[in-house]
């Protein structure tokens, strides 16, 4: 019982700083380092890592946590990303458990798909609620995905390190 509690504490001690570091970079550093008018998304990459290395449960839990932080970093009071990344983490975890091999190419594939989906989730309210033309939005989604994909390399190793502990 005590050992199990210690293990849970260890997981929290490892995961919380890992997520906070990604949150700080996503919300406080990269908004000032935009390339072609866009900043990268880092937290979804952590969800993809947890789903690939630890399966659907970890993907879901990290997804909730990353989603809350994403909603905070987007200055929005809604919980769109909390729900979306939690569901995405579970689904991605299920796919990774059954289909994908645990390696960088799989991680890159998961990240790219998740980033594209994140972009679509971000652009939908603008399309449906504010009537914004879809083409410039897709351009931003594309640029955001490309910029974010560069960070899969360092985050892959971070995610793998964290996954071995949790």
């Amino acid at each position: 019982m005590g050992r199990q509690r210690n293990r849970v504490l260890l997981k929290i001690i490892i995961v919380v700083p890992y997520m906070l570091v990604l949150y700080i970079f996503q919300s406080m550093v990269f908004p000032y380092l935009k390339i072609s008018g866009v900043a990268p998304l880092l937290l979804p990459l952590a969800v993809a890592g947890a789903a690939l290395f630890n399966g659907r449960a970890a993907g879901g839990v990290i997804g909730i946590f990353a989603g809350i932080l994403c909603d905070l970093s987007f200055n929005q009071s809604t919980i769109v990303f909390t729900i979306f990344l939690a569901v995405a983490g579970v689904l991605l975890g299920a796919i990774c458990d059954s289909v994908l091999v645990k390696g960088f190419p799989s991680y890159l594939l998961c990240c790219t798909c998740l980033l594209i989906l994140c972009g679509f989730v971000q652009m939908f309210p603008l399309v449906f609620l504010h009537g914004v033309s879809i083409l410039p939005l897709i351009g931003v989604v594309f640029r955001q995905t490309i910029y974010s994909v560069f960070f899969t390399i360092p985050i892959y190793y971070m995610a793998r390190f964290v996954s071995r502990i949790i």
Binding site: S27, C70, F74, N75, Q122, L126, V140, R143
Partner: peptide
């Protein structure tokens, strides 16, 4: 304090 991380909005805290 900080700017939004969203590339689809322009807001700050």
């Amino acid at each position: 304090i900080s700017w939004t991380a969203s590339n689809f909005a322009s807001s700050f805290t």
